[in-house]
Design a protein around this nucleic acid. Structure first.
Lengths: 252, 252
DNA sequence: GCCACGATATTGTCCGACAATCGGAGGATT
DNA sequence: AATCCTCCGATTGTCGGACAATATCGTGGC
């Protein structure tokens, strides 16, 4: 690569000293305070004008810093509020980052499906041993949502909710985090599938009811085996719908 | 919680309609173009002024959107350059972010182990059907590294390498990405375990050799079942080492 | 062909301004 | 007294313009 003075292997004596813009330093300073527990989750940040005054920079600069922290999930807004508050980097943010990374990697439907086949049955098994009534009610609601959904959009939403609720019921945060990107990326494919083969939706509802029943009985083995069949059904439905398994999932 | 008009259980008839500010919509639009491959990694973004013109917003607004994308790892600057370029959020970086999120969530050993029990066996099964000789050689090397490792540090490194190599061999990028945080977070625990029960290391080597043998034969079922036993062995070793299963994994 | 050297474009930062709207202080009502 | 309504200030979102620093690029000299 001509014009590139950097050699790949030779370790340069000095790092390429990159001048950090003010918005970066402001963001770093606030991040420090958050990670150092001086600012705790739930606390409201000072107003933009106040921050600008304290840092001695313009409000625009503060705003750029805040957008960074916002995207990093360190600060956020809770329900139409105006003030920004400190938040824990939530599962949602991490999950969406994973989703993007996978989407940019041109992950195919079959890869996602394989991952789901690994994760979902075990999750169901764990959920069977741990689910309490609120979790079961939430799953029931998700199934009902699928059932009475008019459009495929709402139906898919319900399916996603079912799987996420299942992960929740498993009480395993690793699985909760793993489940979300998979279902999120799978949902466009699932939607196309439902659009093309309407009877697929009833199959989904039936399978999910069976799983829920197994959860109610606390029967881990049955929950696992039903879930395995359920996930395998996804693939079959996909094939029936005539979509190639190598289709790239599109980033939502 | 006084002052909170939202009830937790009642499903609100209408969603809390959040007005998305312009910088959010701009960021979303650019993100779409990136995820939709209209903008590919390495491409330079239009200048801020150009973007402002195209979106019909002020440059400040564009800048706020760019800070978001920057923090999300979707755009960035390479070496003192001025223009922003589209970057691919690296898998390693994504994995480490997931690890941090899990660590901040105080995830316990048992949760990680459960996730691993779900992922690893299926990964092994897939690897059995797909692994080529380079992948097998890499796995062989990882086992050898465990075998001849002096300290627990190197041994753990070899184990991690084995699992990552297995995910690589499975050809499934979702599993590759999922495996890394799990092994990474598990490794401190694994190390303590090896420190306390030295015979555990030989058990690991034996199990991994069996798995490798199954892979060579292309026997998916056998690879899966050996891997299941292997992972279960981890837990047993952990219990034998006398460490509580609820120990929080420490963030690296 | 390669390199120094301006001209230009682009980014980083600042300033000031204004509309929309959230939050809270009172005042009115039951 | 408790609740609701109204109103005003504070805060955010967005705009337009400005200027210094410097990366980029075309040009001319060797």
């Amino acid at each position: 690569m001509p014009g590139t003075p950097r050699r790949a292997t030779a370790k340069p004596l000095f790092e390429t000293l990159v001048p950090q813009p003010a918005y970066g330093r402001v963001a770093a300073a606030i991040e420090q305070k958050i990670l150092g527990r001086s600012l705790r989750p739930g606390d409201a940040l000072p107003t933009e004008t106040e921050l600008a005054g304290q840092f001695g920079v313009n409000r625009s600069t503060v705003r750029e810093a805040l957008r960074r922290l916002e995207s990093a999930g360190l600060v956020g807004r809770e329900g139409g509020s105006k003030r920004l508050r400190v938040t824990r980097p939530g599962r949602a943010e991490t999950a969406s980052r994973v989703s993007r990374a996978l989407a940019l990697d041109d992950v195919t439907f079959i890869e996602l499906w394989e991952a789901m086949l690994a994760i979902a049955p075990r999750t169901a098994a764990l959920a069977a041993t741990r689910a309490g009534s609120p979790e079961l009610a939430s799953l029931e609601a998700a199934i009902a949502a699928v059932e009475r959904a008019r459009g495929s959009e709402a139906a898919v939403q319900g399916v996603v909710q079912f799987f996420d609720g299942l992960a929740q019921a498993s009480g395993n945060r690793v699985l909760m985090l793993a489940m979300r990107p998979v279902t999120g990326l799978l949902s466009p494919s699932l939607r196309r599938m439902i659009d093309r083969t309407p009877q697929g939706r009833t199959r989904i509802v039936v399978a999910q009811r069976c799983i829920l029943e197994a959860l109610r009985k606390g029967d881990a083995a049955e929950a696992e085996s039903w879930m395995t069949r359920h996930v395998q059904d996804f693939r079959r439905g996909y094939e029936v719908a005539g979509i190639s398994l190598d289709t790239r999932v599109v980033g939502s």
